[in-house]
């Protein structure tokens, strides 16, 4: 449960209102680095996700997140 909560919280995170353009850029870049570092997520690559689901037989969880 803890791992689930931490994983999802990180994904939902950064819900602060949009700030200046530079801050938004930093958030977008930081999100990619943070999520990729978690290792579990396929980032911005839906075809790769479908291919992995076909190969593994697992369902897909696709999260759509507006960062800035």
């Amino acid at each position: 449960m803890k791992a689930f909560a931490l994983g999802v919280a990180a994904l939902i995170g950064a819900m602060a209102p949009a700030g200046l353009a530079g801050e938004r850029d930093t958030k977008v870049l930081g999100d990619r680095d943070t999520v990729n570092a978690m290792g579990r997520w396929i980032y911005n690559d839906l075809p790769k996700g479908f291919a992995a689901a076909r190969q593994s037989g697992k369902p897909l969880l696709v999260v759509l997140r507006c960062i800035p």
Partner: peptide
């Protein structure tokens, strides 16, 4: 969540 293939999309492009 390990039982899912997890994909994150941050763009509507």
């Amino acid at each position: 969540m390990a039982r899912f293939v997890c994909v994150r999309l941050v763009q509507a492009n």
